[in-house]
Design a protein around this nucleic acid. Structure first.
Length: 468
DNA sequence: CTCGGAACGA
DNA sequence: TCGTTCCGAG
């Protein structure tokens, strides 16, 4: 009744640039990109709840990638109502709102499972993170064959930091893009990747430019630019990921912390950012919003959810080059046999579908996108849900280029240091948990052959785009 | 439970 | 644009 829209909030209604505690990048709230969405959106909210451990009894990740179950519909609705100051909110209404996401393909229903929905992270991420050039990500670079097992920087704290400059313990408040001294500009925020473990995790698997794909005769048709496809086995997985416990339902990435006892609660790409102290996660209220003006402010402590263990962000990327195993595991549970997903790259024959359960025959064709969530072109329009895993490398590249176009001049600076210092340190799963030290602010791109090729490829693609 | 149309509000 | 509220239908 009192519409305590603040005290009860998981996240306070914040200004555009505020970085939510759950570690969503500012752009996640797409204040700029989405004129109409000044307020928190339902899916954000859901993500938040999912992020908070204390709500695990109410809503939690479960099942496939991005799949979550609303265990207590009423409570979720109540929370939502609280947030939106809609005392009469109920699950019926909330679910209606949720259903609108179907068309946008931000979410979709897991048929046959009550109160179970699935996030289409690719959408969420891509749409909101168009400029991220995963290809340049250390993760990305690190895990390709080219590195031939060399000290894969992807697992190193440095690497992580380069991608997630504002990681928990760092407290440096530097952001992915505004750190470069170079005029961060207001836009810088949009590029910040405060934390999107799953994003980084997935990308590496497919963002590889053809040149890095090596010997594969043909580019598997992927739909996800950057190769991020949560439905694809390995989507959330990086090559370097600790193996999951047998029988685990989630990809390793879902385990922010291997030591975590309640595995059932972990599964989710964001949880890895839960601050140790915030285990309870309830405190966010006050501290959280206090200085919460915006995460951009350099030095402003970001209200990121630190991982239970510093660096847990790294979790999930420790078993180098084993995309296969992961893929296999996942295939076992969700993919039809035959979907060769060997190299994490999801050699997706384009058929593998992750959740046989669902299959909205003809999901209303993307109502011409509209939603700010719409990304450039995922071309996945045709294939929603399960089929979205099809990935078109070319497209990915293309998109990447596009991103850069968008980035424009900032392209360079906007990108995180491509190659973090060769993480000398061996990415030991636990070791990676150690607090990391700030990465060199500006590292020259490591021009490994792969990178060079990649660069070249990108340029080419960019040109193509421009010409077309 | 789930779905989606429709009207309506901010 | 993003819900919210209603509601009939499967």
């Amino acid at each position: 009744m009192d519409c305590n829209c603040v005290s009860d909030l998981l996240i306070p209604p914040v200004p555009a640039l505020w970085t939510p505690g759950i570690a969503f990048p500012d752009w996640a709230y797409k204040p700029e990109s989405s004129p109409g969405s000044r307020q928190i959106q339902l899916w954000h909210f859901i993500l938040e709840l999912l992020q908070k451990e204390e709500y695990n009894a109410v809503i939690a990740w479960q099942g496939d990638y991005g799949e979550f179950v609303i265990k207590d519909p009423d409570e979720v609705a109540r929370q939502w109502g609280l947030r939106k100051c809609k005392p009469h909110m109920n699950y019926d209404k909330l679910s209606r709102a949720l259903r609108y996401y179907y068309n946008k393909r931000i979410l979709h229903k897991t048929k046959g499972k009550r109160f179970t929905y699935k996030f289409n992270f690719s959408k969420v991420v891509l749409v909101n993170y168009p400029i991220l050039d995963m290809a340049n990500s250390p993760f990305f670079l690190a895990q390709n064959h080219f590195n031939g097992g060399s000290t894969a920087p992807d697992c190193t704290p440095e690497a992580i930091q380069s991608l997630f400059p504002r990681l928990p313990d760092s407290g440096r408040g530097t952001s992915l893009f505004d750190r470069g001294t170079a005029a961060p500009g207001p836009d810088g925020d949009k590029l910040r990747l405060d934390a999107f473990p799953f994003l980084s995790t997935g990308a590496p698997c497919y963002t590889k430019p053809p040149s890095l794909l090596g010997p594969y005769p043909r580019n598997p048709p992927f739909d996800y630019p950057w190769g991020f496809n949560p439905y694809l086995p390995g989507a959330f997985s990086l090559n370097n990921c600790p193996k999951l416990p047998p029988g685990s339902l989630y990809p390793s990435q879902f385990y922010p912390n291997p030591l975590q006892s309640s595995l059932s609660q972990l599964p989710h790409p964001f949880s890895s950012l839960l601050p140790p102290g915030e285990a309870g996660g309830g405190e966010r209220g006050a501290a959280g919003q206090t200085g919460g003006t915006n995460g951009t402010a350099g030095g402003q402590p970001v209200r990121l959810c630190l991982p239970p263990y510093p660096g847990s962000l790294l979790m999930g990327r420790t078993d180098i080059g084993n995309g296969a195993s992961l893929a296999e595991r996942e295939r076992g549970e969700a993919n039809p046999p035959g979907t060769g997903l060997s190299f994490g790259l999801a050699a997706g024959t384009g058929t593998g579908r992750q959740s046989p359960t669902e299959r909205r025959g003809g999901v209303k064709q993307d109502p011409e996108s509209d939603s700010d969530l719409e990304i450039t072109d995922l071309s996945d329009s045709s294939s929603d849900n399960e089929n979205e895993h099809d990935f078109n490398i070319r497209k990915a590249s293309s998109l990447a280029s596009r991103s850069q176009i968008v980035l424009d001049g900032k392209k360079r600076s906007a990108l995180p240091p491509v190659s973090s210092p060769p993480a000398t340190a061996a990415p030991h799963p636990l070791k990676s948990l150690m607090p990391v030290s700030p990465p060199p602010l500006s590292l020259p791109l490591s021009l490994s052959p792969s990178v060079a090729l990649h660069e070249k490829h990108r340029e080419t693609e960019t040109l193509k785009m421009i010409h077309s």
